[in-house]
């Protein structure tokens, strides 16, 4: 029986991602466009928040993927440390800038949403603060990858940074809660405290969330493919140098 680990082989991974990437990219585009058009133009404005609430269709999915990207990097790093599959390390590397971008999108859309709601672009609220700290963790991770020349060394060191960083990111989240109880509404898809979100909002939101997840998958696959090709090019160059 075919094992999942077979796709740790770069050649097999290239073959699989060769069709999976365009498929998920297309599906992502379809879902996001449908979700956003539905959400922006075919839902009613909230009676308290007005039309500005509709930014939720970008804000929530990007925030979701910002955290999930880090979780994926953590899992990929563990796989690299335990099983030494190079594709896994390269996938973690590819996910970092995407996760950082998602974090940035979540922060920016949050600021745009917060301005009319709270009357300020930025509020040192625990959720916002945690996301800002998460963004700093992404920056550090990316910087460490780019600072080290040898790929295996970089993979090992970033993997251990990701592990330690995850613990401290979680601690920072609780520290931020401890520090300030905050203005941000609770999660769990409730728009105003006490009122659960209506299906008219939920349906396009779920479409957008699925779309962002697929978009993330497509981007990570594309990034990993680039890294594998770069690695292959380097391996070829090394062989030429060794032959000469």
């Amino acid at each position: 029986m075919a094992s999942l680990w077979e796709y740790a082989n770069p050649v097999k991974f290239m073959r699989l991602s060769g069709w999976l990437m365009p498929v998920s990219a297309l599906l992502a585009a379809g879902l996001i466009v449908t979700g956003l058009v539905w959400g922006f133009f075919f839902t009613e404005a909230d009676y308290r928040q007005g039309a500005s609430v509709k930014i939720i269709f970008l804000h929530v999915p990007s925030a979701l993927m910002a955290i999930n990207a880090w979780a994926m990097m953590l899992i990929a790093s563990l796989i690299w440390l335990v099983r030494r599959h190079h594709v896994s390390a390269l996938a973690a590397k590819a996910a970092a800038p995407i996760g950082a971008t998602m974090t940035l999108i979540a922060l920016i859309t949050g600021a745009i949403w917060g301005q009319p709601m709270w009357g300020t672009w930025w509020e040192w609220d625990p959720r916002l603060t945690s996301f800002l700290i998460l963004f700093l963790f992404y920056l550090g991770y990316i910087a460490l990858w780019s600072a080290i020349e040898d790929t295996d060394t970089a993979a090992d060191l970033t993997a251990i940074l990701c592990l330690v960083g995850s613990v401290f990111a979680a601690l920072s989240r609780y520290a931020a809660l401890f520090w300030n109880q905050g203005l941000h509404q609770g999660a769990s898809l409730s728009v105003a405290p006490g009122t659960r979100m209506d299906w008219a909002y939920k349906a396009p939101l779920y479409l957008c969330m699925a779309g962002f997840a697929l978009l993330f998958l497509a981007l990570v696959l594309a990034g990993t493919r680039t890294e594998i090709r770069a690695r292959r090019a380097r391996a070829l160059m090394t062989r030429e140098r060794a032959r000469a």
Binding site: L136, A143, A169, L171, S172, W179
Partner: peptide, 19 residues
């Protein structure tokens, strides 16, 4: 680079200590 890596890790200690 070390500052960039270490300072985010300092967040919980800073928050609890200063609090």
């Amino acid at each position: 680079l070390m500052s960039l890596l270490v300072l985010p890790l300092y967040v919980p200690t800073l928050v609890f200590g200063a609090q």
